[in-house]
Write a protein that binds this DNA or RNA. Structure first.
Lengths: 211, 211, 211, 211
DNA sequence: CTGTAACCGAGACGGTACGTCGGGTCTTCTG
DNA sequence: CAGAAGACCCGACGTACCGTCTCGGTTACAG
C-alpha cells in the first residue's frame, strides 16, 4: 500500500444509526455487512494488516470488490470498523466472593480471549497498525477499557467489602494483573499456566495491599 | 506483497561468519551491508512493516535495488536480519545499592529503549510479524532475554544481600516490572511517568516479598 | 526477454468479433486499443522488436502499463496483433492499359510501402521475429498475399487482353517483380530508382513471355 | 537492451591482425576466441538478436562472462564480428559450360546457404539489426557482395562465350536470380523447389537477353 | 403498478511495488 | 597479465493489488 495519509474517520453509513433510516433505493444487504466484517477479521488474524487484501476479503465474503468499497473508503477503515463493531462479547464480571478468586477468573478470561477468540488474534496486527493508524488503535483500546471497567467493578466491590484498603491504586492493580498476560502471549512467548496466573494474582494483590 | 509462505530462515550469507572467508569474485560491500540494514530499520520504525519498500530502502542506502535482493530474498528476510543484527547495545546493569533503586533504573532503561531507540520502535512491527513468522520472533525474544538476564543478576544480588528472600519467584518479579511498561506503551497508550515506575517497582517488590 | 516459448496464438479478446458482445463489467476502451496498436507499431518501426518496451508503448499511448498487459500477455503478442490488425490499406489496383504500365505502378507502390509506411518499416523486425514466432509471420504473409492478389488480377487482365500468353507462370512473374524490390531495400541496400523499376518490369515481362 | 547509440566500430583486438603481436603477460586463448564466436552465432541463429545473451554465450563457450567482454565491448559488436569472421566458405564458382547450368548451381548454393548453414540462419536477425545498426549491415552486405562477385564472373564468362549479349545489365540479372530465393525463404515462405529454380533461371536469362 | 434511486456483480482504468533477469562495469583471487 | 567468479548499478520484465470508474442487471420503497 502506498503510505497514504489516512483520509478521514470512517465509513459512509455508520453502523450505529439506530433505526437504519431507509431512503429510496435498494437497501444494503445486512448479510453482506456481516460477511465482510467476519472475513476481514479472519484475514487480519491470519495474515496481519499487510496480508489483508480487499480482493480476498470480498472473495471470502462472497461479494464483489465494489461492495466492500461502497462501505469503506479504504482497507484501514474496513479493519478499524470491523474490529470496532465486533465487540468481544463473551465476557462476564465474576463474583466468587474473594478478590483473588475474581481476579483469577478475569485473568483466565483475558488469556482465553487473547489466544482463542477472533478479535484476540487480531491484537498483534492491531499493535503494529496502531503505530501508524491511531484510529485503529482506538478500537482496540476501547475494547481494553471495557474489559478494565468490568475488572474495576470487581476491585471496587472488594474495597467496599474491606478486603482491600480504600486508598488503593486501582489502575496499578489492573496493570499488574493484565500486563503480564499480554507480555507472555505477545512478547516473551512463555507459557501462561493456571499456576502462573494464581501466583500473579496473589502477588499483585499482596503488593498493592501494602500502602 | 503476495501472501507467500515464508520460505526459510534467512539471508544467503550469514553475517556471523567470523573470518568472512573470501571466495573468488568481488566481495560484497560491507558498507552497503551497513547502509541497507540501517535504512531498513529506519523505515521499519517510521512506516511499519507494510510501509517498508525495497525501492525506498535501496534509495536511502544509496544502492541499487538488486544489491538488496542479492542479500535478502524478500522483504521479510531483510527486516528479520537487519533487526537481528542490530543489537540493542546501549544498556547497563545498574548498582545503586538497593533492589528498588536498581529495578527503577532497569525500568527507566526499558521505557527509553521502547520509545526512543531505533530497535525499540520496531517492536510493534516485530510483534505482528512474529504471529506469522516464528523465526522473526526469535530475534526479538533473544533481545528480550538478554535484557532479562541483566535484570536477573540485579535480583540475585539483592537476594545475596538478604534484601529479598531466597525462595523468590524471579521470573514473576521480572514480568511484574517489565510487562506493565510494554503494556502501557504498546497497548493501553497510557503515559509512563517516573511516579508510575516508582510505584510499580515498589509494589512488585513488596508483592514478591510475601511468600 | 526471457527465451520463453511462445504460449499461444493471440490476445484475450479477438478484434474480429463482429458484434463485440459486451459481457458484464466495464467495457474496454476502444480508444486505448487504437492508441496502443499505433504506439506499438511506431516503436517497432523505430527501434525494432528488441527496442520495443511495454513501458514506452504505454507512455506513448497515454495509458497505464497494466492496460497494455490486460490486452496482451506479452510483448510478442502485442506486436503480432497490432501488426495483424493494422492492414496496409493505402493500395490500389492500377489500370493503365498495358501490363508493363500496371506492373510499374505496382512496383512503385510496393517500394513506397516498404520505405514510407508504418507497416512497411516493421517488415525487417517481422522477418527476424518470424523465425521464432511463426504466428507473427502469418500476419505479414497475409499482408503480402493480399498485395499479390491485387497484382494477380492485373496479370489476369493482361492475359485476357492477349497481352500475355495464357500459359504464363503467374507466381513466377509476381516473384520477379516483387522480390528484387524487397532484396534491394532489405538486403543489398542498393538504391531503387525509377529507371531500375522500369528495367525490372520490362525484363520480367519479356522473360515470362518466352514460354 | 537500452537503445544506446553504438559506440565504435569493433573489438579491442582486431582479428585480422596477422601476427597477433604478443605483448607481455598471458596471451589470450585462441580456443576461447573460437568457442565464443561459434556460441554467439549458434545462439543468433537459434534465438535471434534479442535472444542472444552474453551469459548464455559465455556458458556455451565454457568461459567466464568477463572473457567475452574483454574481447567485445558489447553484444552488438560480438555478433557483428563473429558473423564477419565466420565467412561462408563453402561456396564455389561453377563451370558447367552453359550460363543456365552455372546460374542454376549458384541458385542451389544460395538456397542451401540460407536454409542449412549457420551463417545463413543468421540472415533474418541481420536484416532486422541492419535497420538500426548500419555497421552490422556492412558485414552481411560484404558477404552478399562476395557471393555476387563469383556469380558476376560466371556471367562475364557467358558474355565472352557469346552466350549472352555484351550490353547486358549484369546487376539486374544477379538480382533476378538471387532476390526471389531470399524472398521465398524469408518473406513469402513458399517452397523453393528444383523446378522453381530452373524456371527462375531460364526466365531471368531470357528476359535479359532481349535488349 | 410503476418509477427511480440505490444496490450488486463484474471488470477496465491509472498507479505502485513486487521479485526476476540481463546488460555492461568493476573488483578480487588464482594461474 | 588472462581468466574465473561474482558484486555493482541500471532498467525492463510480467504479476498482483490498490482505489476509482463505468457498465448491465436487480431490488424495494414511493408516488
Amino acid at each position: 500500500m502506498a503510505p497514504t495519509a489516512h483520509p478521514g474517520p470512517a465509513a459512509d453509513r455508520p453502523a450505529d444509526t439506530a433505526v437504519a433510516r431507509t431512503g429510496p433505493g435498494r437497501p444494503r444487504s445486512a448479510e453482506a455487512d456481516r460477511a465482510i466484517d467476519r472475513a476481514a477479521l479472519e484475514l487480519l488474524a491470519e495474515a496481519g494488516f499487510e496480508g489483508v487484501t480487499i480482493e480476498e476479503v470480498a472473495a471470502r465474503a462472497g461479494v464483489a470488490r465494489s461492495t466492500v468499497y461502497r462501505r469503506y473508503p479504504c482497507k484501514t477503515d474496513l479493519l478499524v470498523d470491523a474490529a470496532a463493531r465486533t465487540s468481544d462479547d463473551a465476557r462476564s464480571v465474576p463474583d466468587t466472593g474473594t478478590i483473588e478468586g475474581d481476579l483469577l477468573d478475569v485473568a483466565h478470561q483475558l488469556h482465553r480471549m487473547l489466544t482463542d477468540s477472533l478479535i484476540g488474534r487480531t491484537v498483534p496486527a492491531a499493535i503494529a497498525a496502531a503505530a501508524r493508524h491511531p484510529e485503529l488503535a482506538e478500537g482496540h483500546r476501547a475494547m481494553v477499557q471495557r474489559r478494565r471497567s468490568g475488572t474495576r467493578a470487581v476491585i471496587d466491590r472488594a474495597v467496599a467489602r474491606g478486603e482491600l484498603p480504600d486508598d488503593i491504586d486501582t489502575d496499578l492493580l489492573l496493570d499488574l494483573v493484565s500486563a503480564p498476560i499480554f507480555y507472555r502471549v505477545l512478547i516473551s512467548g512463555e507459557p501462561v499456566t493456571d499456576r502462573y496466573l494464581r501466583r500473579l494474582v496473589r502477588t499483585a494483590v499482596e503488593g498493592v495491599r501494602q500502602h
